[in-house]
């Protein structure tokens, strides 16, 4: 058994093509990003080596920390939203009528590109004739806020579409995982008199724990480096109130011609993601799943 499953040639054959691909296409850019971070470079002309100046500047850059905080908040909200997605998936995967149709409908937003989602939500949030404010006015709110223009509201307002955008993604994964549980296990539990809630909590969830852990990492890391909707819907504004790390990086590198500094921001983002992953792994480590 062990011998067959330890065949070095096979391992190499299975792993190397993919590894090679990411080493060249992802690791080389990562290393170069760290390297550009050591340069004063507008991205166009000559590079000047300036050592760690960009990185030390990061430490005192309020805008950077503000955007980091915003990214962290987004990541936390994304994590919390996983609970909701899990609940929906549990319902959909249970044998209720119409689950199949509902599941397909629930995943539709996932198919939309960011361009479409941004336009949709811009219309929802429109200060005077948007859906949200029209509703609020209908219910008697006198002067509903301009959601994307208020510095203290914009962050919350922009999180909603981002989290909604990914609903399909996580529901899809959870659903597939739950469907993966053999019926025999659940039937056995039913015969033992377990209630649906008990089955969900005591049997289904532990069985898909591996998948849940993966989604925790994916949603946290994905949120930390999130970019699309924020850039289109608010551009990080007003005055940086909805800036996240990736949009800050983009603005520095591409709009302000500080490619060196932008690269340092990008590299810092990578380190944050790495740190977050290690922490998550520590927190979710259980004895029975050593391989993960």
């Amino acid at each position: 058994m062990n011998k067959v499953m330890s065949n070095k040639w096979v391992i190499a054959m299975y792993v190397l093509p993919a590894l090679l691909l990411i080493l060249v296409l992802i690791y080389v850019p990562i290393i170069l990003t760290g390297y550009y971070g050591l340069m004063k470079w507008d991205g166009i002309g000559e590079m000047d080596f300036i050592g760690l100046s960009n990185y030390t500047k990061l430490l005192t850059d309020d805008d950077f920390w503000q955007s980091s905080l915003n990214s962290l908040l987004l990541a936390i909200f994304s994590l919390l939203s996983l609970i909701g997605y899990l609940a929906i998936s549990l319902v959909l995967a249970a044998k209720i009528k119409g689950a199949d149709l509902l599941r397909k409908i629930y995943l539709i937003p996932m198919l939309l590109s960011s361009v479409a989602i941004a336009q949709l939500w811009l219309k929802i949030y429109h200060p005077s004739n948007g859906l949200l404010n029209s509703l609020l006015v209908f219910f008697g709110v006198d002067n509903p806020p301009a959601w994307l223009a208020e510095p203290n509201l914009v962050l919350g307002a922009i999180f909603v579409p981002i989290i909604w955008q990914y609903a399909g993604f996580y529901i899809l994964i959870y659903y597939a995982a739950l469907k993966n549980i053999p019926d025999s296990v659940i039937e056995a539990a039913k015969i033992d008199g377990a209630s649906p809630l008990q089955i969900a909590y005591k049997i289904k969830l532990p069985l898909i724990m591996g998948v849940i852990k993966v989604t925790i990492v994916l949603s946290f890391v994905g949120s930390l480096k999130y970019f699309d909707l924020i850039y289109v819907m608010t551009g990080g504004g007003p005055n940086g109130a909805s800036e996240v790390i990736a949009s800050y990086m983009y603005k520095q590198a591409f709009n302000s011609y500080n490619f060196g500094y932008g690269s340092a921001v990008g590299f810092a983002l990578l380190l944050f993601c790495l740190l977050a992953t290690v922490v998550i792994q520590r927190l979710t480590r259980t004895d029975d799943e050593v391989e993960y």
């Binding site: 005077s128 301009a146 223009a149 007003p238």
Partner: peptide, 9 residues
């Protein structure tokens, strides 16, 4: 200025 000007393109 129009309502919500800081959030309008």
């Amino acid at each position: 200025f129009v309502k919500g000007y800081n959030g309008l393109s």
